[in-house]
């Protein structure tokens, strides 16, 4: 009982400790606020600029989630296709790796050329940066079906689709839900990149403007807003994972 309480409190204690440490360092070494503002100043600016932070956070959250949603759909479909056929795998994989190696910030100008600045490039950058881990994970889940099990089913006359439906897809689900945690954080990175390069709204743009006006505490407030959104979305994905694929976690689950 005592340990479980300690574990539950641990993240809060660590977070508070980090901020206390940060504040202390700023005060003790008398670091100028335009270099590294202490958390107290960041908090003040958070309150002061709350309407702007709120509005831009919502914008960033929406572009991130839409891009992420597209990545889930596309990544799932492509992952299934890649896992389905060795030919598709052989054909597409090098392309995907090459594509993934391209820094997405380099793609934003092209997106702007095509779609103008603002909402659409942010959504697309979030999508482009986050679909890759989903594809790889789904394909891995499908590729690791036990060959013996495949034999058992094939000997019964199971088609490839049967094996996919009965074994492959359920088996790939933990990989899929696991990849969502990675993908959602990457999606934030994508939308913020695009906002800082080519947008008039969003947290990325807010931070860029704050930088131009030398409002350093506001930059940090933007960072913290992003971090909070990121943690919230990650937690949501982790919850979803635990709910959907509890069998893969095996912690005293389901004694029925």
């Amino acid at each position: 009982m005592k340990t479980s309480l300690a574990i539950r409190l641990a993240p809060w204690i660590a977070t508070v400790a980090l901020f206390v440490f940060w504040e202390a360092v700023c005060r003790i070494f008398k670091i100028p606020p335009f270099f590294l503002p202490p958390p107290s100043l960041v908090a003040k600016s958070f309150v002061e600029f709350w309407p702007a932070i709120y509005r831009n956070s919502l914008f960033t959250l929406s572009t991130t989630l839409i891009g992420f949603g597209m990545a889930v759909g596309f990544g799932l479909a492509l992952g299934l296709a890649v896992g389905w056929s060795r030919a598709i795998y052989a054909g597409i994989y090098p392309l995907m790796i090459g594509f993934n190696a391209i820094p997405k910030v380099a793609v934003v100008p092209i997106l702007v050329l095509w779609f103008g600045i603002g909402f659409i490039p942010a959504v697309l950058t979030a999508f482009l940066i986050s679909f890759f881990p989903i594809v790889v994970n789904v394909a891995t889940g499908l590729a690791t079906i036990e060959p013996e099990l495949e034999d058992v089913l094939k000997a019964l006359g199971a088609s490839k689709l049967d094996i996919m439906r009965k074994v492959g897809i359920p088996r790939a689900l933990p990989y899929f839900f696991g990849s969502l945690k990675i993908a959602i954080t990457l999606a934030f990175v994508g939308s913020v990149i695009s906002e800082s390069v080519a947008s008039n709204t969003g947290i990325g743009n807010l931070m860029l403007q704050a930088q131009a006006q030398f409002q350093v505490p506001l930059i940090f407030a933007g960072l913290i807003a992003l971090a909070v959104e990121g943690i919230a979305m990650y937690a949501l994905m982790a919850m979803l994972e635990a709910r959907m694929t509890g069998w893969a976690q095996r912690s005293g689950f389901a004694q029925t």
Partner: peptide
């Protein structure tokens, strides 16, 4: 299609109960 197979590894599906694992071949054949 008239054969049953078993291997050294039980290769049961962890997301299905024991009973549902038994029903798997019936969903195929």
């Amino acid at each position: 299609k008239i054969a049953g197979m078993a291997f050294q590894a039980p290769t049961l599906l962890p997301w299905r109960t024991t009973l549902e694992n038994l029903l798997l071949p019936l969903e195929i054949v």
